[in-house]
Structures are given as C-alpha cells and as structure tokens.
Amino acid sequence: MSPARTRPLLAPLLAIVSLTFSIYGFFIAPPLTLTRDSGAQQWETRMKALKQALPPGVMVVGYVSDLDLLSNPTQEDFFTEQDEYPLTAYSLAPRMVQRGLEQEWVIGNFTNPAFRDYLDARLPAGYDLQEVGFGIYLIRVRRP
C-alpha cells in the first residue's frame, strides 16, 4: 500500500492519464461502431419516395428482397441483409411490413436482375411495378 502522502498526487495523475487515453480513444482511434456509417440515415432518405407513393390508407405492406430469390441462403446472405428489412419497417411505421407477397402492396428490395422472373412466377399477371430508386420497387398486386 502506498503511503498516505503520495495518494493526493496519484488522484490527479489518474485523472490526467484517463483524460489523455480517452481523447485518444474518442477521437484519434475511435471504435469502428462510432465511425462506420450504420446506413439508417440513408435508408430513411431512400424510403421517402416510397412513402409518398404508397396510398395513405394502406397499413400493411409486403416485403421481398434478394434473399427470397436464393434457394439456399447462407448465413452471410442473411447477415448482408439483416438491417434492411427492420430499417424498412422502422421507416414505414406505423405501417406493418410483412415478409412475403401476400399483400396488395409489396416493397421489392433488389439488386439481383433475376427478380422479374421471381415475381412473374409467383404473382398474377398484370401486376404493377414502380421503381422508386436505389433498387427499391413498389409492387401492386391485383388479385381477382
């Protein structure tokens, strides 16, 4: 144990060391989570046009993405897309966004050009497809 006389010096020393380290940790070498763009702000911007295109009374919309096009999606595929579906739901609140093609209005989030074949095979003919930008599509399904 240190003598009681040196303790009053150790306290400001701890404070100065901590301040120096934290300046380094906060600004010079901050953690990746702080500096990496989470994409939430961009997603909000992407969703603006979609929100305008959706009729006001629609409270439940479907959602399909590149992930649905894969017959055997890997863990990495899920990981790549893990934020985009919740971000869509977050942006469109209070509308409920449900995975699948069962709704009249469906959001498509595609980068894979084969998505047209996927939709043609699963939706009744004559569905409307409106591109709103950034690989986001608004699909209207007219069921008899």
Partner: peptide, 10 residues
C-alpha cells in the same frame, strides 16, 4: 448516428 444503431430501430 441520429437514428442510433441497430437495436434502436429494431
């Protein structure tokens, strides 16, 4: 990060 991180929006 005005919208926070993933747990914030999920």
């Amino acid at each position: 990060h005005p919208h926070g991180l993933s747990d914030a929006w999920t």
